[in-house]
Design a protein around this nucleic acid. Structure first.
Lengths: 108, 108
DNA sequence: TCTCTTGCTACATTTACTGTAGCAACATGC
DNA sequence: GCATGTTGCTACAGTAAATGTAGCAAGAGA
């Protein structure tokens, strides 16, 4: 539907050390990235639904993160509309699912 | 050694929804937060050592993140100097250790 | 056609991070 | 006792990223 920020370029320092974990930590360490994956964890959401789920975060960042996550192969836009996790994305999501239990025990 | 930004206040939207997971995702979704935990994963580092490990990220953010992570109880400053993970922090770190394996398979 | 929802963008304002410099406190060596 | 080097940490100007509000084009349904 549009041409989206020819990403590829912008990357926080340390992303290109050759170690994939760094690139991943960098990608996931951007605002709303983790949250987006989390909100999509068990069902696809429309862009607007996602925005609501993410506490009305601004569409600008959401869109930016979605593009990055799509480029990374974690999220996809179904032809019927709505964002959902790819198989890879679902896998990723499951690797940090234990965070939920951890957070509950942590409480603050 | 100093008094540090009386944090407490600043929090990305969605942190106070009552759901601890949101607060956690918020905290970990700030720049360098995940990276810091990762770099401390198996040994304490001095502030300078950490900076080096983090690709010379600016001390300003590093210090800010460290304060937040300390306040959250994940990181501590040993009296002998040097930052290390608390028991809780080590536990947290282990919950997203599988990311490493995932990242290797992902590669980009 | 009018209405509603979809994905997505523009843009001015505010907030966060970067980069560089440097401080006070404490060691170590000389 | 006085350089030298380290620690944790801060200041601050400049730049990049996020927020908030508005709104667009395209498609679906009535």
């Amino acid at each position: 539907m549009a041409k989206q920020t020819s990403s590829r370029s912008r990357s926080v320092r340390g992303s290109r050390t050759g170690r994939p974990i760094m690139a991943l930590l960098d990608l996931l360490g951007r605002r709303w990235a983790l949250r987006i994956l989390w909100e999509l964890r068990d069902a696809p959401l429309t862009s607007r639904g996602l925005r609501t789920a993410c506490d009305e975060a601004s569409p600008t960042v959401l869109q930016a993160r979605l593009s990055e996550l799509r480029e990374a192969g974690f999220v996809e836009l179904g032809e019927a509309g709505g964002y959902g996790l790819t198989a890879l994305g679902r896998e990723l999501c499951e690797t940090f699912m234990p965070l939920h239990r951890f957070a509950e025990r942590w409480k603050r």
